[in-house]
Every structure is written in structure tokens, then in C-alpha cells.
Design a protein around this nucleic acid. Structure first.
Lengths: 140, 140
DNA sequence: TAGGGCAGGTCTCACATAGAGACCTGAGGT
DNA sequence: ACCTCAGGTCTCTATGTGAGACCTGCCCTA
């Protein structure tokens, strides 16, 4: 837990630096969130965690992503060095995506997040039902 | 690391369940990503990690968020039980936001992510420069 | 007593991003 | 001759986001 505190303290130092001097220091957390903080990246990385997969496999695994966003998310992750793209010269050519070592190193911190999601999911759900059920007791 | 593997294996079981039966099983990871996977939530939670803060303090801390999104993000986090809203009847009334116990329990998994961001940030940056520098060696 | 400022928002408009789904290419099956 | 497949791209529309004007009550100052 002291790990958590020190990491967060480091972050808040970046934040205040940022606040103080308009653009000079840039917070790594912001950068990393720009990479994997979008709608599909985390899901993509977790889907690739078990094994390399091809474009259409990924599309089947994440059924509600559009081809356009699938392409774009993979391209961004490739650009950031988290995912590697491999083209096999078959007919028709097949393309395989897999996690680079950098991408794999993200699995451990992400696993603790999954773990949290699993354990706390019901709490969140309950809070939401409660909130939606009693929206009027505190007028805004 | 076996923790990571087991968590990810659990996730992939959800994924394949999802793929098999159209809507019956819903993956908790997807739900949690819907909560905190948007542009501002993680940043908000980390900013609230150090201490409770008022609306305008948060606005100063995260300078590039609009008031509209600040309100909306806080409302969503409150709805999901991660953040608590407290109104003091001063004149004019002041409003304080702080992490609920549920929100605080998220700090630990998030800290490991921050830690990763700090350590690997330069790798990502390097990969990006490399990718942008040589965009033409593999024509798509 | 008129005017201005503050906190904590809401509202409207404009623009950026995401999704749906048609289309493309080149080869192989029937 | 026609259909299918993988791995995309393209266009159009729907949704999300940002900028910034405005609102409400109360206080302070001139």
C-alpha cells in the first residue's frame, strides 16, 4: 500500500508542476492514458494476452468493435510499441498481431485491475441501482 | 505473475462466453471499463487520491477539462459509488468531492499502472518516434 | 443602491470522434 | 461465371467533447 501512496504522490507532483508552469513538464500518466485510455485498447491488449491472433479472430472476440476502430486501435498500439504486426505471405495474406515484450509487461499491472473489477463489480452495480432509484432526494 | 495469468485467463473465459451466447453472460471487465475507461475518470480519481477537493480545485488541477465534462465525470463516478459528493451550506454553498471506500480500493491497482507508466513511458515514446520516422517501409 | 465578484453549476452551438455498413483486391472453390 | 474469404478502406450518420455564455444567491465595495 505504501507503493500505491508513493506512486500517487509522484503523480500529484506532476499534476502540480503542470498546473504551475503551463506546458513545461508533461505528466507520463497523461501520456500513457492517451495511449491505452481509449475505448478499446485495454480490451484489445487483454484479448491478445492469451495468444497471438489474426484480424478476424480479434473481430470475433470483440464483437461490438467496428472494423474501422479495430484497424485504428491496432495501428495505434503498434505505433506505441505494445503490439507487433506480422504479415504472412499466404493467399490471401494473413496478418497476425501479438503483444511485444513492452505490451506483455503491461499485463501484470492490468491484471490487478481485472482482479479489482471482478471483486468490486457487484458493489459498483449496487451503487448504480441505488443512485438511479433515488435520483430526487438531493435536488441539484 | 501467476496472479496476472489467472486473472487474464478468467477474463478470456468471459470473452469466449460472450462470443458464444449473444448477450447472456456479461464481462465485469467490460462494465468496469465503461465506468473508468473514459477520457477523464482515471485522472479524476488520481487527483482525488491525495485529499478531498472542491469543484473549482479540481478544475484548476485538471486545467484542460471543461466544466461540463468535470460535472459529468463527477456525476458518473458518484453514480458508480466511487466518489462521494458533500454539500456544505455556506454562502455560497461549497461542494466537496472525495473518494468513497470503494474508490479508495481502486487506488492500489491503479498505482501499479502509474508505476508502469513512469517506468515504460520512455519506451513508448521511443517506439512512437521510430514508427513515425519510418512509416513507409511496410506499405499497407 | 447599483455594480461586480464568487461558487457551482447548466445551456447552446460547433466540431471531433465512433459506429454501420458498402466496397475493394486478388486468389481459390464449385 | 459466380461466390467466398481476409484484411482492410471509404462514406455517412450518430454520439461525445469543448468553448464559452449564462444563471442563482449572497456578499462587498463605491
Amino acid at each position: 500500500m505504501s507503493d500505491a501512496l508513493s506512486a500517487i504522490e509522484r503523480f500529484s507532483r506532476y499534476q502540480s508542476d503542470d498546473a504551475r508552469s503551463a506546458e513545461s513538464v508533461h505528466c507520463p500518466v497523461r501520456d500513457v492514458l492517451d495511449c491505452i485510455g481509449d475505448k478499446w485498447s485495454i480490451l484489445m491488449i487483454m484479448t491478445l494476452a492469451t495468444r497471438p491472433q489474426r484480424f478476424s479472430e480479434l473481430h470475433r472476440a470483440i464483437r461490438d468493435i467496428s472494423k474501422r476502430m479495430l484497424t485504428q486501435t491496432l495501428r495505434d498500439l503498434e505505433r506505441d510499441g505494445l503490439v507487433t504486426r506480422n504479415v504472412f505471405p499466404t493467399k490471401p495474406p494473413s496478418v497476425e498481431y501479438y503483444l511485444s515484450p513492452l505490451g506483455q509487461s503491461l499485463l501484470e499491472p492490468m491484471a490487478s485491475l481485472i482482479d479489482w473489477a471482478d471483486r468490486r463489480y457487484s458493489d459498483i452495480h449496487a451503487a448504480r441501482v441505488r443512485f438511479d432509484g433515488a435520483p430526487c432526494d438531493v435536488p441539484r
